[in-house]
């Protein structure tokens, strides 16, 4: 496997006073499914627009295969499929017309590469005479992916393909990406949903225009440095309030019906915590040691980068 099929070094882009991305470096192997995970406004779209040759970086460089994103932009455009964050197909064309249009632009036909899109396009083919503007969210997403694939690109760049999409359609979409990976296509995908990180081979966790961490999801979660407990009690609101003033706390984060609690000092925990909660009158207390997930790690990295320790 080509370990650095895609490579970015020190990419920086500013818009007036705003630094969209700052010193972003990474490499992606051929055939890898690589995720950029981070909230809105963190620079993911800017980064993707640079990689797809739609924006010039202020500093730094990037290449896909042997093509530089600035100097060889024509070659790159031939070899990548890009799905922008907003639905960018022609609403006044039918499903089939859109697909045919994209195939024609890239000098190919639907028939020639049908095998690549079969799994995805077959879901919407019964509606091929429908205007794209009248499709549901999940269908638009499938059509956009089909159009991005029809010229047989070696790299797919997908900007938040699952944002605003319900949990079921999100899962279906990731199943499709897994299938595409088998075809050897390198896939860059961005998402604000932390739970999708585990579906990628490797991920970059992004915040405020910077990459905080790059690794496999398993390596990131196994490197979480603190003891972590899932805590439950009868009333979660009161539990949270009490945990937030517990002396031996490092972090307190609600996760659904449990609260994830990391102690500042693990030595006497969770016994100390149990006693404290009992003394505060909680009932139904359950404290279990757990392994950190990506979201725990993301918040830990965020907090650590926001409050640099002064030695």
């Amino acid at each position: 496997m080509d370990e650095s099929f895609i490579e970015a070094a020190g990419l920086t882009k500013t818009f007036g006073p705003i630094t969209a991305i700052s010193d972003v470096s990474f490499h992606v192997g051929k055939g890898e499914l690589f995720g950029f995970i981070g909230p809105d406004g963190t620079g993911k779209t800017t980064l993707f627009r640079i990689l797809t040759t739609l924006l010039l970086p202020d500093k730094g460089s990037a290449r896909i295969g042997s093509h530089d994103v600035v100097k060889n932009f024509r070659e790159i455009r031939k070899n990548i499929g890009y799905m922008a964050g907003r639905f960018s197909l022609y609403k006044d064309l039918t499903v089939e017309e859109n697909l045919k249009f994209y195939a024609t632009i890239f000098d190919t036909t639907i028939e020639e590469n049908y095998h690549l899109i079969r799994n995805i396009y077959s879901h919407i083919e019964p509606f091929k005479k429908r205007l794209a503007g009248n499709l549901s969210g999940g269908m638009k997403q499938k059509l956009a992916l089909s159009c991005a694939l029809i010229h047989k690109p070696d790299t797919l760049v997908l900007d938040e393909p699952t944002t605003g999409v319900d949990a079921v359609s999100r899962r279906e979409f990731w199943e499709m990406l897994k299938e595409l990976k088998k075809e050897g296509i390198t896939i860059l995908v961005s998402t604000p949903y932390m739970d999708e990180a585990s579906l990628c081979d490797r991920v970059a966790l992004m915040q405020s225009g910077r990459i905080m961490e790059i690794d496999t999801p398993a390596a990131i979660t196994s490197q979480y440095p603190y003891a972590l407990f899932a805590v439950r009690a009868g009333n979660i609101n009161l539990l949270l309030n009490d945990l937030e003033v517990y002396e031996n706390r490092r972090s307190v984060q609600p996760f659904g019906q449990t609260v994830h609690f990391a102690p500042a000092n693990a030595a006497n925990e969770p016994e100390g915590l149990r006693k404290y909660l009992e003394s505060r009158g909680h009932s139904g207390i359950r404290i279990e040691p757990i392994h950190a997930g990506i979201e725990d790690c993301f918040m830990m990295l965020m907090t650590n980068s926001e409050q640099p320790k002064t030695e």
Partner: peptide, 24 residues
């Protein structure tokens, strides 16, 4: 209506704390 779309996980949680307080 989808009040927390696209925000970071820390902000999302602070927001839910407000929701709890309001319901309370």
């Amino acid at each position: 209506d989808e009040p927390t779309g696209g925000v970071d996980p820390v902000t999302r949680r602070q927001f839910w704390k407000l929701i709890y307080e309001t319901a309370h």
